[in-house]
Design a protein around this nucleic acid. Structure first.
Ligand SMILES: [Mn+2]
Ligand SMILES: [Mn+2]
Ligand SMILES: [Zn+2]
Ligand SMILES: [Zn+2]
Lengths: 147, 147
DNA sequence: CAGCACCTGCAACATGGTTGCATGTGCAAC
DNA sequence: GTTGCACATGCAACCATGTTGCAGGTGCTG
C-alpha cells in the first residue's frame, strides 16, 4: 500500500464524516478537519494557516470553514487568555485533561503529561464545567539558545 | 467641608497610593484608578473612555495607564467572552495571580479569592513566565435560575 | 452531464490594541 | 522657588484578528 493511497483513504473518511453532517465535502473542509484531528492542542486560525502551507486557503475561507465546523458541532471554539480564538475537535478531546505550555519565543505548544492541578474552591452554587491551565514562558530549546 | 475639598482628598489618597508604588501621580493615573475603585464590575478600555468624559485622555495614553496599573499590581486584566480586555481593581496586598471563573450563561467574570493552584512540573530547562487558570461553567445565580 | 445551492476568493471594512517619536511635566535636588 | 531630566503624554501610523458584500466557481443530486 502506497503512502498516497493511505492518505487518500484518511481523506475519504473525513469527507464521509463531513457529508454525514449534511454539508459538501470540499478540499478546504477536508484539509482543515484533518489538521484538527491530528492536532495535539487547540489551534488558532494562524496555526492552521501555517500548517496548510501549499494548500493555503483564502484567509476568509478559513474563517468560514472554522465557523462551519463549530456550527455543525464538529469543533469547539474558545477564546484563549490572549484573546485569540482556538479551535479543537469536538470529539472527547484528549487535551482537555492536561495543562498546556506555550513558548513565547517559538510559539510551540507542549502538552504537559502531569495531571493538572486540582481546581481551586468555587463559591457556593457555582458549577464547574471546564478548566484550562495555560502556562507560558520559554521552552528548553529557546531558553538554551538565549543562554 | 465642601464637595471640592472632599473630592480633592480622595484624589490625594489615590495619588499617595500611586507614589507608594514608586511611580508618578499623574492626572491620568489618578482619574483612571478612581474610576476602577468606584466600578462595580470590570471595565473595558471603551467603558473608561466614556466615563472620562471631559477629562478624556488620548486613546494610547489610556492603554498605557491600564498596562501600568496591571504591571504595578494595582489592577487585573482579563479577556472577556467577546475577546475584549477588561480591567478591575486588584485586591489590596494580593501578589500572586489568581484564577478566574467565567459564567458561560451571563458572561460575568469572577476573581477567585483562593490562591491559584501551584503550576504543574515542567520538563527540564523550561522557564515559566505566566500561568493562567481559567475556569468556566455556570455561576450561582445562573445555575439557580435554571434549576 | 446540467443546474443550482452552496462554497470560495478577493476587496474593503471594523475593532481593539501597539509602536515610534517629538513634546510636556512630576518631582527630587538644589 | 527654580531647574533638570527621567518618565509620561499625544499624535500618527501601524498591526492583528475577525467580518461583510459580492461576483464567480463547484460539489452534488437528479
Ligand atoms: Mn494537549
Ligand atoms: Mn482577578
Ligand atoms: Zn520555544
Ligand atoms: Zn452567570
Amino acid at each position: 500500500m502506497s503512502t498516497r493511497s493511505r492518505r487518500s483513504t484518511e481523506a475519504d473518511v473525513v469527507a464521509a464524516q463531513i457529508r454525514a453532517s449534511g454539508a459538501r465535502a470540499t478540499p478546504a473542509r477536508i484539509r482543515v478537519l484533518q489538521l484538527l484531528r491530528a492536532a495535539p492542542a487547540a489551534l488558532t486560525h494562524h496555526d492552521i494557516e501555517q500548517a496548510l502551507g501549499d494548500a493555503m486557503l483564502d484567509r476568509v475561507t478559513l474563517y468560514r470553514v472554522l465557523d462551519w465546523l463549530v456550527e455543525s458541532g464538529l469543533a469547539h471554539k474558545n477564546a484563549d487568555a490572549s484573546r485569540v480564538f482556538r479551535f479543537s475537535l469536538a470529539a472527547p478531546g484528549e487535551h482537555t485533561a492536561h495543562a498546556h505550555f506555550r513558548c513565547d519565543d517559538c510559539g510551540k505548544v507542549y502538552c504537559l503529561d502531569d495531571a493538572p492541578p486540582p481546581p481551586p474552591a468555587l463559591p457556593q452554587g457555582f458549577q464547574l464545567a471546564r478548566m484550562d491551565v495555560d502556562l507560558r514562558g520559554r521552552c528548553a530549546t529557546c531558553a538554551e539558545a538565549r543562554a
